[in-house]
Simulated assay, not measured.
Amino acid sequence: MQPTPSSASGPSPMPAVPTVGIIRVLTSDDPTAIAEHGRLLERHYGFPTFSRCIPGQPYGIHDQESERCAEPKIVALAREMAAEGADTIIISCAADPALERTREAVDVPVLGAGAAAAAVSLGLGTRIGVLGITDEAPPGVRAVLGDRFTGAVRPREVRRTTDLRAPHGAPAVLEAAARLVESGADTLLLACTGLTTIGIRPRLEDLLAVPVVDAVLAAGLMASYTRTR
């Protein structure tokens, strides 16, 4: 039986073809919302996906404590998804929570959205500005960017991914991104996958005329190289 693309959290048939498993770190009981990043990757890259979210985190990952709580849940969910047939797993969070632990736990490639976005950014610019929901860039992103990192900005009044969907979210993102470019950034890295959810990347590129790297799309690009053909 062909798998249903982007199936949400809960029991599902084992995929019959190589399939990318998407781990969402924002808890939701809405199957459409859970599957959103998977559907985006299907449209862009053509591979099938199925999506699950970790439990008990309605605000996702937004600080050290929420990341600590999420890590064992991510590892457990990755094991389940690999057992169900995922040939590649994407942790759809730019903080790359539990990335190394998950790679040790399963026998398929595991990709972190943050590290993937940083790698793509290096191919596009020399002064990378990081836009996210924390005051500092995620450590994994900083490690990959090295001396090409030029600064990090958090939009005003945005501290959790759910804040991005508030009325002030998109205007605050646009203003923060403009500050990064004014300070010298020649490429922007979106260090929160909630920025993918609100679809802000095209508006940023039109407004600021610099490349903008979406972390979910970057992880999907990497996944297109890991999958069995």
Results as ranks from 00 to 15, higher is better:
160 R>L: 11
182 E>Y: 04
159 R>N: 12
174 L>Y: 07
167 P>M: 07
168 H>Y: 13
187 T>A: 13
157 E>L: 13
179 R>F: 05
173 V>K: 01
185 A>I: 05
185 A>M: 08
186 D>S: 06
162 T>C: 10
162 T>I: 13
161 T>E: 04
178 A>H: 07
168 H>Q: 12
162 T>M: 13
174 L>T: 09
157 E>N: 14
173 V>W: 00
179 R>D: 15
178 A>V: 04
165 R>L: 15
159 R>K: 12
167 P>E: 05
182 E>V: 02
179 R>M: 13
173 V>P: 00
180 L>W: 06
176 A>V: 10
166 A>E: 15
179 R>S: 14
162 T>W: 04
163 D>L: 06
171 P>Q: 06
171 P>E: 07
178 A>K: 09
157 E>W: 10
183 S>I: 00
184 G>E: 07
173 V>G: 02
159 R>F: 14
182 E>F: 03
164 L>A: 08
187 T>G: 06
167 P>Q: 07
182 E>H: 09
163 D>G: 03
180 L>H: 03
169 G>L: 04
158 V>Y: 03
184 G>M: 10
175 E>L: 06
176 A>I: 07
166 A>G: 09
179 R>T: 11
160 R>S: 10
162 T>D: 04
178 A>T: 11
173 V>C: 04
163 D>T: 03
183 S>P: 01
169 G>F: 01
169 G>W: 01
175 E>M: 03
166 A>Y: 07
184 G>V: 06
169 G>S: 05
164 L>E: 03
177 A>V: 10
181 V>Q: 02
173 V>T: 01
172 A>S: 14
166 A>I: 05
159 R>M: 12
170 A>Y: 02
187 T>W: 09
163 D>R: 01
167 P>G: 05
174 L>N: 04
174 L>K: 08
156 R>L: 15
181 V>T: 09
185 A>F: 06
159 R>C: 13
167 P>L: 10
168 H>P: 02
185 A>D: 04
172 A>D: 02
157 E>I: 06
168 H>R: 12
178 A>I: 04
178 A>D: 13
182 E>L: 09
185 A>T: 04
182 E>D: 15
166 A>L: 15
175 E>Q: 09
173 V>S: 02
173 V>R: 00
177 A>F: 10
179 R>K: 14
170 A>W: 02
179 R>G: 13
176 A>M: 11
170 A>F: 08
158 V>W: 01
182 E>R: 10
171 P>L: 08
170 A>D: 06
186 D>A: 11
166 A>Q: 15
173 V>A: 00
162 T>E: 09
158 V>H: 00
166 A>N: 10
156 R>G: 08
171 P>K: 05
164 L>M: 11
162 T>Q: 09
161 T>Q: 01
165 R>S: 15
187 T>H: 07
177 A>S: 11
159 R>Q: 13
185 A>Y: 04
185 A>N: 03
169 G>Q: 01
159 R>P: 01
166 A>H: 10
178 A>Y: 02
184 G>P: 05
176 A>Y: 03
164 L>V: 10
177 A>L: 11
